[in-house]
Design a protein around this nucleic acid. Structure first.
Lengths: 135, 135
DNA sequence: CTGTTTATGTTATGTTGTAACACAGATAGC
DNA sequence: GCTATCTGTGTTACAACATAACATAAACAG
């Protein structure tokens, strides 16, 4: 059982996380809302409030450059290092990875500047291997 | 004379770039629109179209996590490496820097995956030196 | 001088995200 | 039991960010 399940999610949080897990890729908040209308969701705030908590828990990541959200691909997201994302602009696939070496260098820079780092956003846009091959 | 000026900007592009340069920090498209109403701007598209070109030219960067835009801090932006940004959540200050070492490691990862990298987004959130000291 | 490309102006609309207020359920302390 | 508080929820309305579609004009190559 994944560490995610250790946390007691509320009903709405579980529904939203389930949508993202089932999707296997990024969804916008409004896409989630549409998926959950049959479960009683009526308004964007129901989605955004659940997403806020899930992001806080580390179970969901926000993709700033897509205005979308994705379930963390790790079994246990809490406490892992900063995530990065490779986003294919052809097929929309998103690969999460953890570039500890690159993040370490960025941390070195922030420390040298006296900048107290709270959160990193690293998003790489391009074309994935499959789409390069077929395109 | 900076390399930026080498390029012949259209009237709207020059107005938008001037706003961002004068601001010395990030502005949203609608903030730019309000600044330029006295110059005849009436609609968001006038701003977005100019921003699209300025970003394409490398003279302006988009900050994905702020939905805002900032003039490149380099004299000659064309052709320089990928930029990164340290964004202070207290005072809103944005520092642009060029972490070639970290970007190099990210490129190594993409190459090992067969991912054709087109563009990197690196945005660091936290508290700048001044705000750490005063807070 | 005509076809093409690029920039522009304008209206309307689409997409993403929050404010404000009301209510329900759990629970800790008296 | 009772009430204070905290968290989650439901709903309406709205704010903020971005683009579609269509029309006009200026620049320029052939």
């Amino acid at each position: 059982m994944s560490a995610h399940a250790h946390r007691e999610l509320t009903k709405n949080q579980a529904l939203v996380f389930g949508s993202l897990s089932d999707a296997g890729g990024p969804l916008t908040a409004y896409a989630i809302l549409d998926l959950l209308r049959e479960d009683g969701f009526r308004a964007p705030l129901q989605v955004y409030r659940a997403l806020d908590k899930l992001v806080e828990f580390g179970m969901v990541h926000r993709l700033e450059s897509l205005n979308a959200f994705v379930a963390c691909s790790h079994k246990d997201c809490t406490g892992h290092g900063s995530a990065a994302f490779a986003i294919c602009e052809k097929c929309g696939d998103v690969r999460e990875f953890t570039p500890d070496d690159a993040v370490g260098l960025l941390k070195n820079w922030t420390e040298s500047q006296g900048f107290a780092l709270a959160r990193t956003t690293i998003e790489l846009r391009g074309t994935c291997k499959g789409c390069v091959a077929s395109g």
